[in-house]
Design a protein around this nucleic acid. Structure first.
Length: 532
DNA sequence: GCAAGGTC
């Protein structure tokens, strides 16, 4: 008996084959570029069988309208709600993937579906069933459900084969149909209605404008517009505050008023006059506290995009493209992961060693991290998310360089990885509280006592302020200045890509894998612009 | 010329 096993991606087919065959499987190419075939003998339910593993690459089928309504002027946009839709294999790579599946299905008696354990995976399972039973209707169909790519889980899955869940798959069918009908109809309606009403030439691509609508695009744009409205609605207001400066030779510091700011100029001026009338400052307290700056937790896909866009000023979409290439070239672990904690027995040491040579700017740090006497290493703090399929994003081997942007991204991922394996930074905060004419002021200083992860994580700084001059409780001094200053309230800052990604995550717009695409689309369509 | 989801 031959058993055809289909995974959602080649990587899973390869890994499950490795685990079930004990590392002894034959790999051959298929007619599909990225979907390999893995074969090995296996004992299934007490029977000797030949296992044949292959994969799709995500969805195999795509929902499309009947040909009658495909032209933009063939029907009214509202007719797209009644037109019939069907699932078909889109032209291109997926046709090759279908051919691979059908060739194998003809020679097999069983079909075991190893798709991801989520709704999309369940839906893809039925796509695979549809394509395979077209050429072999007598296939016995089973679903393998595994939660992690480890032997125990995979073995449990093959010994507890179940049936695919049609309800879950149909939930995805419903989503697809809603997305397509609403998206296509509103896109046509808006575009046809408005394309000649305004001058869109600035936004046109290939001579025409596209005013697309989609259930992810629209709320994404909404988040951008919301901030723009907040900025437009801002009415600047003046405020006043008292600033106290201390100076003694080269030593100087600034004291912040406990009232922070007042919006009543007369009151602020009166309090200022009281200070001027009795300007001698009395130190009422000197407080010290230990402060800790936490090292980052291991890197998930969305966190990579958020930090990458902030630290490197690189669009999320390009970060993902570079990460994907670095992964395929073997420099990086799998770039699509929700996991931000390392498994207990992960070989972190080996991963750090891989960065300790090569003369990179971080090699010396990696070497220190490995040296026990440095006491710099600490097992990364768990971030609390685990997709049970992939580890956090981390470097596998040294990237020799070539593409400047890819280098910058790789460097960030390495530094983040080394940082999350390092101890937190420690500092000593000093607060000096003074009284002038009944008003309270505080100066705060921070001395970093142990930089630890900050040494390698050059994207973050801490303190920056010089340590304070030494003050003693009860001491008095004459300030160098007691000034009444005026300020103006500022509108909220414009939205950054990092903020937008975070908000989309918060509101559940798109998925980890698509958030960057939706942002990219805003720019492509000219709905929003992004500057430096 | 349209959506959003999956992946190399």
């Amino acid at each position: 008996m031959r058993v055809l096993n289909v995974a959602e991606k080649n990587k899973v087919a390869a890994q499950v084959s490795q685990l079930l065959s004990g590392g002894r499987c034959r790999q051959t190419n298929s007619c599909a570029t990225y979907c390999k075939i893995y074969e090995f003998p296996f004992q299934l339910q007490g029977q000797q069988v030949e296992m044949v593993f292959t994969s799709v690459a995500g969805h195999l089928l795509e929902l499309e309208f009947e040909p009658r309504v495909k032209g933009w002027h063939s029907c009214a946009p509202r007719d797209l709600y009644d037109a019939s839709v069907h699932k078909g294999v889109p032209k291109g790579e997926n046709e090759k993937i279908r051919r691979n599946l059908q060739q194998l299905a003809r020679t097999c008696q069983w079909l075991v579906l190893w798709l991801d354990c989520d709704r999309e995976g369940e839906n893809i399972a039925f796509e695979v069933i549809q394509v395979c039973t077209e050429v072999n209707p007598r296939l016995t169909i089973r679903r393998a459900r595994f939660s992690a790519l480890i032997y125990a889980d995979v073995a449990r899955a093959i010994n507890n084969l179940a049936l695919p869940n049609e309800h879950e798959a149909k939930a995805v069918d419903a989503r697809q149909e809603i997305d397509l009908r609403i998206g296509a109809s509103f896109t046509r309606l808006q575009t046809l209605l408005l394309q000649n009403k305004f001058d869109w030439s600035e936004y046109a691509q290939d001579g025409r404008v596209m005013l697309s609508y989609g259930p992810c695009q629209f709320p994404t744009l909404g988040l951008i517009v919301q901030r723009a409205w907040e900025i437009q609605a801002h009415i600047p207001e003046n405020f006043w505050y008292i600033q106290v400066l201390y100076r003694d030779g080269p030593k100087a510091c600034e004291f912040q008023w406990h009232r922070k700011r007042l919006y009543d100029q007369a009151v602020a001026a009166m309090l200022h006059e009281l200070c001027i009338a009795a300007p001698l400052a009395t130190v009422t307290a000197v407080e010290g506290a230990r402060k800790t700056r936490w090292a980052p937790v291991p890197l998930s896909t969305l966190e990579m995009q958020k930090r990458g866009s902030q630290y490197l000023r690189m669009p999320g979409e390009r970060i993902m493209r570079h990460a994907e290439e670095l992964y395929q070239q073997g420099f990086l672990s799998y770039p699509r992961t929700e996991t931000d904690q390392f498994d207990q027995n992960y070989d972190l040491r080996g991963m750090i060693e891989a960065q300790a040579g090569g003369g990179a700017p971080w090699s010396a740090y990696a070497q220190r991290l490995l040296a026990p006497e440095s006491q710099l290493f600490r097992w990364p703090k768990p971030g609390g998310h685990d997709d049970k399929a992939h580890p956090p994003i981390h470097p596998l081997k040294h990237y020799p360089g070539g593409d400047r942007e890819k280098e910058a991204l790789f460097e960030f991922i390495v530094r983040h990885f080394l940082a999350c394996c390092s101890k937190d930074a420690e500092g000593q905060e000093t607060r000096v509280i003074i009284d002038i004419g009944g008003e309270g002021f505080t100066a705060t200083g921070l001395m970093v006592t142990e930089r630890n992860f900050l040494e390698v994580y050059r994207y973050q700084s801490w303190g920056g302020q010089d340590s304070l001059p030494v003050f003693q409780q009860g001491q008095t001094f004459m300030p160098a200045a007691i000034d009444l200053k005026q300020g103006t309230t500022q509108p909220p800052p414009r939205l950054t890509e990092r903020d937008l990604i975070a908000k989309m995550e918060e509101y559940g717009i798109g998925t980890d894998a698509t958030v960057a695409d939706h942002i990219q689309k805003q720019l492509e369509r000219g709905y929003a612009i992004k500057d430096e």
